[in-house]
Design a protein around this nucleic acid. Structure first.
Lengths: 209, 209, 209, 209
DNA sequence: AATGAATGAGAATTCATTCAT
DNA sequence: AATGAATGAATTCTCATTCAT
């Protein structure tokens, strides 16, 4: 509305476009989470957005770009939730605990986002040219976690272990919650979070209490 | 003479049929592992077997049966490697250790098999009629592991923890090795196995040594 | 504005869609009449419409729906021609006469329509899942005719006979004209109609004049 | 067995071949009658004969020849039943009556044969080059009947009518019994035969009694 | 005389994408 | 900015036919 005044404005198109893109990304997330990657056709996503198929092609270069935006969106949202929680802690154990807990909370709150990510991770190779590389999407998360673990070792809080193996293990423990939750919706998340936190607290700390 | 006996006879498969089926299953495994579930079309699989598309239809009732055979084949091979190793142990910790180690060895030796399984697990749900149910293929593995862990707790070897959460965590730590290995082929498997075994030894045992 | 209303709206078909559907139904009728049910593939029908195969899928849910539309279309056209002619009569003999004559006229004018119907009737049962049930398409016509005959008996115009057997006989005498006409295009339809009308007039009436 | 003695005997092969061909024709008839023309695949027919697909190709030049044999076989059997019955009569009305009754009896006794014929008549155009021409199979029957009717007119027993139209009408009244019987197995055949005989007796005879 | 194995063409259907309006 | 229409490639599956044994 306000934008009609600024005739020829470049901003206004950008606003509508931004909104549409966000909407389409949301619909894509839901479709992928609920139907799986390969059943989340453009037609299905468009239907969920109550919009014609052409709109997606109009706003995104192709399915590929749409999927990339899904990945980016989820990553950003997760970071926004988790990072403050982690940086609020000062001990390595505390940070690891915050990492696991905030991540599980994010999953609980955005189950479809994570489900979509996992479906994409495995299914996206569908396009001959991988639209989203596993490495690109997941490795940074592992790297960041590994760095956190290493600093815990350097501070003398954590025992010696391969930070990479441990980081991968923790990430997978977390990521696999989403499908589990999907199959068994009344899963006790609090318990699950506590179990994981305890397990990896024990598995990483230097000396038993 | 020849035809009177046949009726009702469940004559077992001919030699050549058995060989072809095995070959096609192998080609399917490779195709799925390398291209992803949905790019592993019958045409692609046939091409890898240097055989016409129709051959697959001739030997398997449909894509569904082929995929089922892939799952069965992998499961059987893995069991054949792992079970003897596990049952050779007598302590719960020993069994867990054998479980992890033999599983990683199997993965190292049959990377494509595991990659195929994971792709099927995610990709197959994607069909309107899931050709292979995730639960059917994976949950039993988790269940078996959980049972093993519970017996460890009952024997007093393991601390108290949710056996389900721990079993899921361990299985995912293992399963996620395949894609990792695929992305990073010169991964030190021995080290990885040792790290995982140590981590879950520490994470499960009752009292620190 | 545009999208708020749409939801739930059963907006009727667009002009162009209606035209395409009609065109495709016509092409299907011709293809089925000329090539037989099972040679009338979607590809063939599309080719006749000078349109890509996908267009049929775009406008019809599947072959099934297309065939259903063929049946509906033919039935409606035939009814539109015959019913006024029949209801214009007041004696049972007059109605039967009008029934036979108007039906033959319709067949003469729409030979392919009838040929298509017959091919569908026999060919469609042939699909594992019959796309169009013989009974549904043909029995009503027999039923309606039998009812007309019965009312003629009740009025005392017609002799006693099994209205079902007679209705079946008349319908088949009529329906079989189409293939006959197809094989022998210069058939004298006027004569044929007169012969049939006379035959069944004699065969049904109570007392000779 | 006995044939092994007559080494190189041409006769013995002929005997087995004749038997096989007859068996395959029977199986084809049943398959076509029960499943419809296009579902009666060579595989299905072979299965019913408990024989491999190749056998059919071995004994018949192709599906086309097999279908031709089906038509020939049915025609011969029907003639064998009907002709003696017809020629036993001496009045035209008696012959027509015998024609209708013996034909219905044949249908009752060999329902599948007639069903197969009808399915073939409509469905066989499936092959681009019609494997069986409607004309070839059905017109002779109509011609023969028309001739019979004409002789009735010449003798002064029958009224004037187009013998062709009447013959077509009668043949179709008869042929349509098979599908009817198939849809409604407990149909009263005696009644049906009596109705048809009466109807066409009335419709053809010169003067009302 | 018969079989099992393999072929390749053709079927329906699905889908991302393009384009005129 | 959005839509409906159309395309063409790809997928699974079926089938008559061929061929070595």
């Amino acid at each position: 509305m306000e934008s009609e005044i600024i005739s020829g404005g470049q901003e206004s198109r950008s606003f509508i476009e931004t909104a549409r893109r966000a909407q389409l990304v949301e619909c894509a997330i839901d479709a992928i989470a609920e139907l799986g990657y390969s059943n989340a056709s453009m037609a299905e996503i468009a239907k969920r957005a109550r919009v014609s198929k052409g709109v997606i092609s109009y706003h995104f270069a192709g399915k590929r770009e749409l999927i990339e935006q899904v990945v980016n969106t989820v990553m950003e949202k997760a970071s926004a939730v988790m990072l403050p929680r982690i940086y609020a802690e000062h001990s390595a154990a505390g940070m690891l605990h915050a990492y696991i807990e905030s991540n599980l909370e994010f999953i609980a709150a955005h189950r479809n986002h994570i489900l979509a990510m996992m479906n994409i991770a495995v299914g996206a190779r569908v396009d001959r040219k991988p639209s989203v590389d596993l490495e690109l999407a997941f490795e940074p998360a592992v790297m960041a976690l590994a760095t956190m673990l290493r600093s815990g070792q350097e501070r003398g809080e954590f025992r010696e272990f391969s930070t990479t193996v441990m980081a991968v293990t923790i990430r997978n423990a977390i990521d696999s919650l989403a499908p589990l939750l999907s199959a068994n919706p009344k899963l006790d998340l609090k318990l699950y979070a506590k179990e994981l936190a305890t397990t990896f607290d024990i598995a990483t700390r230097k000396s038993p209490v």
